[in-house]
Design a protein around this nucleic acid. Structure first.
Lengths: 192, 192
DNA sequence: AACATCACTGACTAATCAGTCAATTATCGA
DNA sequence: TCGATAATTGACTGATTAGTCAGTGATGTT
């Protein structure tokens, strides 16, 4: 028979993602993950020497997806506001259509797993956002706040919008909420 | 000997709060909590029939503290902006000086423990904020956004500021950050 | 002092945990 | 086709888990 590509590792990560968002890190046993992934318990430990290792691997993987999605379609042309809006939109659309990943990041970041160091380290991965904000402050398009503060408000603002959408009845217009949210953040940050 | 007031229940809740923020919910065993509280394991289960019960009790207790702190010094006089600023300031100062409670709420809210229903239920507890925002929208002082969205952005914005302060070197001026944050949110929400 | 009440104790249990490893199976070059 | 290597398996282990319960000791009332 034609073998499906052997990707037990991926299956394990996917199972873990699903169960972690449903039951938390410690609430999910390695046995449950293995079962969900249709894999023996031993196989899990071939790929990830410890459970903690699995959690961290998953986190870095998901963060990679997130920061990749964030920078999509960020061509050079367009006003500063356009570019910021593009990132805003990218973040929110990624969160809405990758619900488990989105929730997992939130869970991980407010859990004791993550140290201040790790959090800062990962923030540095958001190159697009960092560069753009620095530029915006330099050119005076963003008012004179600490860059870190601007980034935090922007990033957490987009998370708030995703959560808002996920909690809403699906009847709500997601695009309207995305726009409203950006209006709030943009007017809050922009000069004028 | 003069007996200290017997308050094993309180001791248990305090121990749980400390350990939960250090090690997470599932990462903390009932045995560890009992030990930290200088209490027998059986005693814990006298007060809280299950571990989950303990977690929920702690959550409601802490939430009570938070919403009480939020409404402090909210006398009738003062402009609309003053009142909103008062709440903003109350939230942030509570978070900064009650770090464990603050982190616990964050952890709980992004954990699978909390259901959408519970989250909405608890949001309704924020009477002050709800009333004020409704009023501000009615009088036109806040632009025409859905009230829930305004509340979410405001509340999460204040959390972002607390996290920012907690992660900063203590050299940073906390009041400056609190002010900057309010500027961002206020300009984002206010008409004109 | 005698009794009743009840918060409290901690040894105990059945279940479950992360992680191991000897045995089995799949893969692939020659 | 054969042998070597690597991937996979699941029964197993010692440690730990949430929760139990028979018993102890402190308290208050008469």
């Amino acid at each position: 028979m034609k073998e499906q590509i052997k990707d037990k590792r991926k299956a394990i990560l996917e199972a873990a993602l699903k169960l972690f968002t449903e039951r938390g890190f410690h609430g999910t046993s390695t046995a449950q993950i293995s079962k969900e992934a249709n894999v023996a318990t031993g196989t899990l430990f071939n790929y990830f020497p410890t459970k903690e290792d699995l959690i961290n691997s998953l986190y870095f993987e998901v963060k990679g997806n997130l920061s990749h999605a964030m920078g999509k379609d960020l061509e050079a042309k367009g006003t500063f506001q356009d570019k910021l809006k593009r990132i805003w939109s990218n973040l929110i659309k990624w969160g809405v259509s990758n619900q488990n990943e989105f929730l997992f990041v939130g869970q991980f970041c407010s859990s004791p797993y993550i140290t201040k160091f790790t959090r800062e380290e990962v923030m540095k991965e958001y190159v697009f956002l960092h560069n753009l904000v620095d530029e915006g402050i330099k050119t005076g398009e963003i008012r004179d706040f600490p860059a870190d503060l601007v980034i935090a408000m922007f990033y957490q603002g987009s998370r708030t919008i995703v959560n808002f959408i996920l909690d809403s009845d699906s009847s709500q217009d997601q695009n309207k909420v995305l726009e409203d949210g950006f209006q709030i953040i943009w007017r809050g940050l922009a000069k004028e």
